[in-house]
Amino acid sequence: VLAFTATGFVVAAFGQALGIDTLVVRNAGAIILCLVGIVLLIPRLQDGLSRIATPAAAWASRQQSALDDRAGLWGQALIGALLGIVWAPCVGPTLGAAVALAAEGKDLGEVALVMAAFGLGISTVLLVIAFAARGALARWRGRMMAAGGRGKIVLGGLLLIVGIFILTGVDRQLEAFLLDHLPDRVTEWSTAF
């Protein structure tokens, strides 16, 4: 949560000074979504990526094990911090809200609070899922593996569609349409958090 908040805060507060163009980041994210979607839709690409990634994953696993042996709990905190930094670009709307607050000259404390609240919210959900799912995962492993194959196709299609929507600007048109046609109470409820 700290690494994610710090990364988002730096981007929001100093992104323009650092030369970070939000449109470039938006388009790069959309292209990555499209590429991941395509890989999830084509099994041959999944196999190729798996062959390429296996040595890197093995190296990362060895490094994590060595870090666990040497640093224990602090090593896990470091791994989590690195994951928080890597994860920061995945939360476009929250990062966008923080960048917008910073661009408007709002209090940077409010920017940090938005990022921290999001990070705490998502990490809490992940912890609840982890504790609740421990026993269920062992019992449902076979069913989950079967559903995973279908889920890859659905997820791949959705990621490809979202990436295309972002690249073409359809996402903003859809957002404007929904804001114009949804009842005010829905908009008020969704922005109250």
Rank of each mutant, 00 (worst) to 15 (best):
E175G: 06
I38D: 01
I164N: 01
A53E: 03
D107L: 10
G105V: 12
A58F: 05
W74M: 15
G121E: 06
D180G: 12
A102E: 10
I129L: 14
A146C: 11
V24Y: 13
I31N: 01
G29C: 09
L2V: 15
A56Q: 03
I122A: 12
A132R: 05
I166C: 04
D180P: 05
K106L: 07
L35A: 12
A53G: 11
R70K: 13
R141S: 15
I52V: 15
R141I: 10
I52Q: 00
R134N: 03
A57V: 14
V25R: 03
L41G: 04
Q173F: 00
I31M: 07
V11K: 06
P183N: 13
A133D: 01
L35S: 05
L41W: 00
A133S: 09
V11E: 03
D184G: 01
I20G: 05
L35Y: 06
W59G: 00
A3S: 14
K106C: 08
M115C: 07
A81L: 09
T168E: 04
I166K: 03
L127N: 03
A97V: 12
K152F: 10
A192V: 04
D68Y: 06
W87D: 10
G151W: 02
E175R: 04
A133M: 11
L41E: 01
L78F: 07
S65E: 08
A138I: 12
L95C: 10
G135F: 04
A88R: 02
L179N: 09
S123M: 09
V1G: 08
V91L: 09
A66V: 07
W140I: 05
L174M: 13
L160M: 04
I166W: 01
W87T: 09
L33S: 08
G48S: 04
F9M: 10
A56I: 14
L45A: 06
R62V: 13
I38T: 01
I31P: 05
V128R: 06
A6F: 14
H181P: 01
V125R: 07
N27Y: 12
L73I: 11
E104D: 15
Q16H: 14
L83M: 10
Q16I: 09
A176W: 00
D69E: 14
I161H: 00
A192L: 06
A3Y: 07
L41A: 03
S190H: 06
L23M: 12
L127I: 13
G75Q: 02
A88M: 15
A136L: 15
P183L: 14
